[in-house]
């Protein structure tokens, strides 16, 4: 029974991954791209916590999720700082203005 519940959460978490990846692959605004990353992040924390629930070790999973959220804040701060600097350098948030490097 508890395993079935896990599958339901994983189903929706996969939906979040899909949304995030769709955003990353199709959008052009840098901030929008980062919103995609955030959505993937939510999917990941849902996977972590629901795994803990399925394993009956919700406390452990909870502490992992808290740590993960702290990591995420730090990452968001750095990424948004890079985006602001990019905007200052290019006067644009369009990914198509990032063509200096060949990739």
């Amino acid at each position: 029974m508890i395993m079935n519940e896990w599958i339901v959460y994983l189903l929706f978490a996969a939906g979040m991954f899909f949304l995030g990846l769709y955003c990353l692959l199709t959008m052009r605004n840098l901030i929008k791209l980062f919103i995609g990353i955030e959505i993937i992040g939510k999917g990941v924390s849902l996977v972590l916590l629901s795994t803990g629930l399925a394993r009956k070790s919700i406390l452990l999973a909870q502490s992992l999720v808290v740590t993960y959220i702290v990591l995420e804040v730090s990452l968001v701060a750095v990424a948004l700082a890079v985006i602001i600097n990019l905007y200052r350098a290019n006067q644009s948030l369009d990914i198509r203005s990032l063509t200096r490097l060949k990739g």
Binding site: R28, I31, K32, L80, Y87
Partner: peptide
């Protein structure tokens, strides 16, 4: 809370870049 505030701040600081046309 916090991350949304950071997002809002970034959006405010990059106001003119708002009109990126998505396909």
């Amino acid at each position: 809370g916090l991350i949304t505030v950071l997002f809002m701040l970034t959006i405010a600081l990059t106001k003119q870049g708002d009109d990126v046309r998505e396909s």
